[in-house]
Simulated scan of single mutants.
Amino acid sequence: MSELKQAITEAMKNAMRAKEKARLGTIRMILAELKRVEVDERIELDDARILAILDKMNKQRRDSIEQYESAGREDLAAIEREEMEVIATFLPAALSDDEINALVDDAIAKSGASGMQDMGKVMGLLKPQLQGRADMGAVSKTVKARLG
């Protein structure tokens, strides 16, 4: 079992002992999603893939919050924010804008990108480095701005 999955399982046990219902529910949801992917794809997840799944779950929460706020449902948005906080505890520390810009510049230089047609190459280099540490949508906009 990967280190990250063990950490999530241990966090579930701690939440059970502390009787933290909201946190426990979110952690169980994470473990259920990991198990679903393992069963569907018949693989054992590694830390990189778990980070990708957690990042995707966080993105889903961001989108939900946006929709709930536009519909005036602050109560539901608050629940999503709490889930995001729990998910974020298992993600690596976020990178600063300066660090992201430096990685984007480096990836453009390494790939020899000269225009928008090379965006896939640049994003391919960036994704493994930034997974779970930055909003890939924002990174994509930065790359477009640099290449465009």
Rank of each mutant, 00 (worst) to 15 (best):
E82P: 02
G112I: 01
I30Y: 10
Q117I: 12
G25T: 09
D47C: 03
E3R: 12
E38N: 05
D47T: 02
D105P: 07
S96G: 13
A134K: 07
A32T: 01
A48K: 12
S96D: 13
A134Y: 04
V139E: 06
D55N: 13
K59Y: 11
K56D: 12
S111G: 09
T9Q: 15
D46E: 11
A22L: 13
A18M: 11
D98T: 12
P128T: 02
P128W: 04
K21M: 10
G132R: 01
V39F: 04
R49A: 00
L95D: 06
A7D: 11
K35S: 08
D63S: 11
G148V: 05
R42M: 11
T89D: 09
E83Y: 11
R146G: 01
E80Q: 10
A145N: 13
E82R: 09
R49C: 05
T9D: 12
A7G: 08
R23Q: 13
L45R: 01
V86T: 09
M57N: 03
R17H: 09
P128M: 04
I100M: 05
K5W: 10
M12C: 10
E33W: 00
L45C: 05
A7P: 01
R28V: 07
D105M: 00
R17C: 04
E44V: 02
L45G: 03
L103Y: 13
